[in-house]
Design a protein around this nucleic acid. Structure first.
Lengths: 223, 223
DNA sequence: GGTATAATATGCATCATATATTATGTTTTT
DNA sequence: AAAAACATAATATATGATGCATATTATACC
C-alpha cells in the first residue's frame, strides 16, 4: 500500500483509505473525524485530507458541517428504508436490463454463487453468505449495459453495510434470502424480465422491513 | 450574491457558482478548467477552488485527471442513453411512491402545470416548456417520502440539460411530450401506480431515443 | 525523429486567520 | 444570597493564503 507506487496523488490515497475504514466499519456511524489528527497519522498535510473529505461528503459517507467538522454519516431507520427502497428501484432495473446479456456461462456462474449461498446458509457462515450475496448481485448487474448504474448501486451498497446485523438479529432472514435468490435465478432462467425486476425489488423491500423491525426493538446504537 | 452574507465558506461559494455555470451551459462540455484562473477571477486562493472541484467530480459534472487538470464532463450518446435510462428507473419509482401522497391540492397544481405546458406548446415557447416540464416533475416527486431519491434524480437532471436541444432538433417531440404528460396525469387521477411508473419510465426512454437519433445525424458538437 | 529543456499547471506543506465551542466570570432576577 | 441568564475570554479546529515542489506538455535543439 505504499503511497508512491500505488497512488498518483496523496488526496486519492487518503480518500481510498478513509473510505475503506468507513465501509469496513472500523469507523462506526457518528465517529467524528478531526482533519489534523488524520493528517498527522498518515504523515501528510491537512490539504489532501480535506479534499478527500469533500469527496466522501458528496458520496454521502460523511457529513460536513461548516466550521464544525466532519462525522461519519449516521443512518437512522428512516434513512435506511430510503436507501433500501432506492436500491430496490435501481437494482430491479439493473437486473432487468442485464437479463438479455446473461449468456450460458454467466448463468452457470450465477447458479454456482447461489449454490455457495446455500452451503453457507446451512453452515451458518453469515460472513461468507454476505460476501457471496454481494458477488451474486455484482455479477448479475455487471452483465448489463450501464456501468454508471452499477457504480450508483454499489456506492449505495457500501454506504451502509447492514447485512451482517440483519442476519445476526433476524436469523430467520438467512433462509428467506436464500429462497429469494432461488426465485430470482428461476426468473432469469425463464427470461422473465418483468418478474425478475419485481423479485429483486421485493428482495430489498424485505431487507428494509427487517431492518425497521430490528431498529424498533433496538436502537441500532451498536451498529 | 455577496459571499459573506449568503455562504458560510468560500469553498461552498465557489462550488455553487461553478455548478451553476456548468448546469446553465455557460461552460459547455469539454471546457478545461484552470484552477488558478478561476481563483484569480473570483478573488480567492486555489484551495477553495480545488475543494469545489473535488465535489463536482464526485457529482460527475467535471472529470479530474491527476496532474493533468479538469474539464467539464463530455456526454457522448452512450452516456446520454445511460443517464436517461437510470432516470427512467428512478423517476418511475419516485412517481409510484409519491402517488399515495398526492392530495387534491397537489393534483390541482400538477394539472395547472400541464395546462401551462399545453399553452407553451401551442405558443412554441420551448424555454418555458422545458421549465414547466421540470416543475411538473419536481412537484410530483417532492410529494413522495424519499428526499434522497429526489436529490439523486435532479443531480442527474442537472448533469445534462438536453431538453432544449431535443426540442430544437426534433420539434415533433414537443407535442409528444405534452401528450405523455396528459397520460401521466390521467394515471395519477386513476391512482394507477403500476401504469404511472410504466408511463414515466417510457417518457424518459422516448427522450433517450430521440437524443440517439439526433446524435446519429449530428455529432452533438454544438451542445 | 529523439532527447533535452523550458513553460505551465497541478499537488502539497507551512503558516495565518476566522469561526464555533467550551469555560469562566459577571450581571440580573427571583 | 442562590440560581439562572448573559456576556466575555480561551481553546480547539476548520478554513484559507502564500510559496514551493513535481508532474505534464510543448518547444527547441541536436
Amino acid at each position: 500500500m505504499s503511497l508512491k507506487e500505488t497512488y498518483k496523488t496523496k488526496s486519492g490515497f487518503v480518500y481510498e483509505l478513509l473510505r475503506e475504514r468507513i465501509v469496513a466499519g472500523e469507523w462506526p456511524q457518528g465517529t467524528v473525524i478531526v482533519v489534523a489528527s488524520v493528517a498527522r497519522e498518515l504523515g501528510v498535510s491537512a490539504i489532501p485530507v480535506r479534499e478527500a473529505m469533500k469527496q466522501l461528503q458528496a458520496e454521502g459517507l460523511v457529513e460536513l458541517e461548516p466550521h464544525r467538522g466532519a462525522r461519519v454519516t449516521v443512518f437512522d431507520p428512516k434513512k435506511i428504508v430510503e436507501v433500501m427502497s432506492i436500491r430496490g428501484a435501481l437494482e430491479g432495473y439493473a437486473a432487468r436490463v442485464a437479463l438479455p446479456f446473461i449468456d450460458d456461462a454467466a448463468l452457470a456462474d450465477l447458479r454456482r454463487k447461489v449454490d455457495d449461498m446455500g452451503t453457507f446458509t446451512v453452515a451458518g457462515d453469515t460472513a461468507r453468505l454476505v460476501a457471496a450475496n454481494k458477488e451474486f448481485h455484482r455479477k448479475l448487474y455487471s452483465m448489463g449495459p450501464f456501468p454508471m448504474l452499477n457504480d450508483m448501486i454499489f456506492k449505495l451498497w457500501d454506504g451502509g453495510a447492514f447485512s451482517s446485523i440483519v442476519f445476526a438479529l433476524r436469523p430467520d432472514r438467512i433462509r428467506t434470502v436464500y429462497e429469494e435468490h432461488l426465485a430470482i435465478l428461476a426468473a432469469i432462467e425463464r427470461r422473465d424480465a418483468e418478474e425478475l425486476e419485481r423479485l429483486v425489488r421485493a428482495h430489498k423491500s424485505g431487507f428494509a422491513e427487517a431492518l425497521c423491525e430490528i431498529s424498533a426493538r433496538k436502537r441500532l446504537e451498536t451498529l
